[in-house]
Amino acid sequence: MKKLVVALCGLGFMAGAAAQSLPAEPQYQHIEQQFAALNLTVNAVSEGPMDNMLQVFTNKGLFFTSANGQFFIEGNIYDLKNQQLVNEQQMRPYIKQQVAKAADGVIEYKAKNEKYVINVFTDPTCGYCRKLHNEMKDYNNAGITVRYLAFPRGGVGSETYLQMQHIWCTKDSRGAMDAAKDGDKIQPAMCANPVKSQYEMGQSFGINGTPAIILPSGRLIPGYQPAKALLAQLEAKS
């Protein structure tokens, strides 16, 4: 188990530009301030899995801290009794909630006989994203509806970020996505779009690559999964 523990009070520096964060509950304002020193935006704070520990959901994923905010814990925490990764279990409700809020901004490939809905953070230039897309019929035939969320790997301001805005703003966004996954040029089209907010949401889940699949349970699966293997996991309600 790899983890890094840093004494925040002994860092001896402040970030050049403190992260803009949501107002913390009064009892957690010290956590917000300490994390700002690390350029981390605090989205939510709650009691952690151990005594005197807090779990902090940030714009860059889940971290843990001592209740007084002195110690910052980066890495995985394992529950040996229940044989599970605490980080993943704690993230699931948060991911599920955030993805539900973004439902209106997805590009959907709906299964005719829908049994399950998955959300996939995608990038049209990603090889395994194209492989997943080329097998869309397999997912749909298995009863799996696929909803795409934007995650331009190059970040905000990249060429892919601009391309994804064009895709989301095109009247036929599905057709534009199909064309982009085939490597075709997309005609410029700009509008108010969710690409930036979806990318930032993915970062807050700790995503740093594509495809990244979100199951209905809120479980995050990094990387490509063939339809048969994915269906087995969905049927197991994992």
Rank of each mutant, 00 (worst) to 15 (best):
R130F: 10
S66I: 12
G12F: 05
A192K: 10
K115M: 09
G154R: 11
A44S: 14
L38S: 13
G75V: 11
F57N: 14
M201C: 10
A100K: 01
T210S: 09
L149G: 04
Y148H: 10
M190K: 14
Q225V: 02
P211A: 05
Q163D: 05
G105D: 10
A176W: 01
T125S: 12
N39W: 11
L162E: 12
Y78M: 11
P216H: 11
G175A: 02
D184I: 01
E159Y: 03
I167N: 03
Q83V: 11
E114C: 07
L62C: 03
V195H: 02
A232W: 02
E135F: 05
Q198W: 07
A19T: 00
Q20T: 13
V156K: 14
Q163I: 05
A103C: 01
N82M: 06
T58W: 07
W168E: 04
R147M: 14
T122F: 07
V42N: 00
L85H: 12
G105K: 15
S21I: 01
C129M: 04
A192P: 00
F72V: 09
M164D: 01
A192W: 00
V156G: 08
A15T: 09
P93H: 13
D51P: 13
N87T: 14
Q27Y: 04
Q29A: 14
Q97S: 09
K3I: 11
T145K: 06
G183S: 11
S204W: 06
G75Q: 08
H30K: 03
Q55F: 05
N140R: 12
Q198F: 11
G69L: 01
K131L: 15
L162D: 14
L80E: 09
L220D: 03
Y94Q: 11
N68R: 04
E108K: 14
P23E: 05
Q34V: 14
L220A: 02
R92K: 15
G209H: 08
T125C: 00
K81Y: 00
K171E: 15
M201P: 00
E159I: 03
K228E: 08
C126K: 01
A19Q: 08
M53H: 00
L62M: 07
L162N: 06
A37T: 13
Q233P: 02
K110R: 12
N119M: 00
A18S: 09
G183V: 09
V106Q: 06
K110I: 15
Y148S: 00
V6E: 07
A180Y: 02
K2L: 15
I107G: 05
V156F: 10
Y109P: 08
E108M: 09
N119E: 13
R153C: 15
V56C: 03
Y109M: 09
A18T: 13
T160L: 05
P26K: 08
R153P: 09
L22R: 15
K96A: 15
Y161M: 10
I95S: 02
